[in-house]
């Protein structure tokens, strides 16, 4: 484990905690896309199929359980919680997200490192994660006004991806035979999707004004 990987995991963890904090304490999910959260839940479910069969470390197992548990509880909160679900902007969250899964599945069947069920599902989760943020970004564009916690949530998610790229660069130079084209290409695409958001996030931070995306 290198410092970039740890920083990536910690910003990922922080993003989830920020979102749970918003939902649990403020009892609001305003500005949050349920579609993106459902895709994340599917991403973790299909990626961690080896949770009980492939032990890597206590750290890995605990983090996997946290990401699985948090993603499903966030979906539950938005869909089922008596108070929280009332703050969900359903009309702004119209992305046909399940259609994103088909190209990811087809791509995973044809482009993978090994043609086994577990490996294809893992590859599917990598492709799906790359584009899972799209419904959230579309929703941001529509609502434009972004509250602090939502802004921080998306910033932390983007930071997590950026740290993972640094982690791969580090591992490429420090480990032998460390070449993973599938994760790298999908990961870079995923990070680029945050580019626009990052730009406006830093602008608002620099000028000390409220974050607002252009129409």
């Amino acid at each position: 484990m290198n410092i970039f990987r740890l920083a990536g995991d910690m910003t990922h963890l922080a993003s989830v905690l920020v979102l749970l904090l918003k939902i649990h304490t403020i009892k609001s999910c305003a500005g949050i896309s349920l579609k993106t959260q459902e895709l994340f839940a599917i991403v973790f479910l299909t990626r961690y199929l080896d949770l009980f069969t492939n032990f890597i470390s206590i750290y890995n197992t605990i983090m996997k359980l946290i990401f699985l548990g948090s993603s499903f509880s966030i979906v539950w909160y938005i869909r089922r919680h008596r108070v929280v679900r009332r703050s969900y902007d359903k009309d702004q969250d119209t992305f046909r997200h399940f259609f994103l899964m088909w190209p990811c599945l087809i791509l995973a069947i044809f482009i993978n490192e090994k043609f086994t069920l577990k490996e294809v599902m893992w590859t599917f989760s990598i492709y799906l994660e790359a584009i899972a943020i799209l419904p959230q970004l579309v929703m941001l564009q529509r609502t434009r006004n972004i509250d602090n916690l939502t802004g921080q949530y998306i910033f932390l998610l983007g930071a997590y991806r950026a740290f993972y790229i640094l982690n791969w660069i580090y591992r490429y130079f420090t480990e032998e035979h460390y070449v993973h084209w599938i994760t790298w290409v999908a990961g870079v695409i995923q990070t680029l999707l945050y580019g626009d958001f990052f730009y406006y996030y830093f602008q608002s931070w620099k000028n000390n004004v409220k974050l607002e995306l252009p129409a």
């Binding site: 990987r5 080896d50 890597i56 983090m63 035979h177 460390y178 070449v179």
Partner: peptide, 10 residues
């Protein structure tokens, strides 16, 4: 890398 190495990330 081996399969385990490939999936040691989250």
């Amino acid at each position: 890398g081996t399969e385990a190495e490939a999936h040691d990330e989250l």
